[in-house]
């Protein structure tokens, strides 16, 4: 499905898309959070891109691990330790590999979800990034099992993630900063679920 060179390309696209959407993500964080999600994510991914030359010839596991470490040390909000742990666990799932197939990709996604849950102790339905991540991974798994191409199963994943973002508008936040606004969080989409969808779209953008 991809080699380490392509993973580097994907991460660069992630950084670009996060940068383009930084204001949008921050605005989403205003009514239910502290108005910084896009700023946080953009700061983190800028550092990731800055450090890419140092790891671009490493294996995929090492590239993902470094990405996670950079996010932990530079994001500055909850999405730092959460996405950071996700990328680090994803890296551990494919440690030493220079090339990965669809099953490895599923391992990466499962490890990422596991990482977010390990760090944030949230479940599905608490209005967090998990409400996009979990359905996306389920859709990708179905696609892989059905023998679909990466372009097809990634498109399925993006569609499920977007539906997950819509779903976050209908529920009350019970984890993270948004839980402080309680019922007033209804009607607003979760910034983290939205940024996850953008990250998945960044991967999908390199497959056609």
């Amino acid at each position: 499905m991809t080699d380490n060179k392509k993973v580097v390309e994907i991460i660069k696209v992630m950084a670009e898309i996060i940068h383009e959407n930084a204001q949008f993500l921050t605005d989403l964080d205003a009514p239910i959070g502290d108005n910084d999600h896009g700023i946080n994510m953009d700061r983190g991914f800028q550092k990731v891109v800055e450090d890419l030359p140092g790891v671009e010839n490493s294996d995929i596991g090492a590239i993902l691990k470094k990405t996670g470490m950079d996010l932990v040390s530079t994001v500055g909000g909850s999405s730092g330790p959460l996405y950071g742990t996700a990328f680090m666990k994803a890296g551990a799932a494919v440690a030493g590999k220079n090339e990965i197939d669809a099953d490895d990709f599923l391992d990466i996604m499962d490890a990422a979800v596991g990482g977010v849950q390990l760090r944030g102790k949230a479940e599905k339905g608490e209005k967090t990034m998990l409400d996009a991540m979990i359905p996306a991974v389920e859709a990708i798994r179905k696609g892989v099992d059905a023998g679909k191409t990466p372009a097809e199963f990634l498109a399925d994943g993006v569609e499920a993630a977007k539906a997950g973002v819509e779903y976050t508008k209908t529920i009350i936040a019970t984890k993270g900063r948004a839980s402080y606004v309680g019922e007033r969080s209804i009607g607003h989409q979760d910034p983290g679920a939205t940024s996850f969808t953008l990250l998945l779209e960044s991967i999908a953008a390199l497959y056609d």
């Binding site: 932990v72 500055g76 909000g77 909850s78 730092g80 330790p81 959460l82 950071g84 742990t85 760090r119 944030g120 993270g176 900063r177």
Partner: peptide
């Protein structure tokens, strides 16, 4: 205090 203070410290 809360949120990422706890998660980052944990890491």
């Amino acid at each position: 205090d809360m949120g990422s203070s706890c998660m980052t410290t944990e890491m």
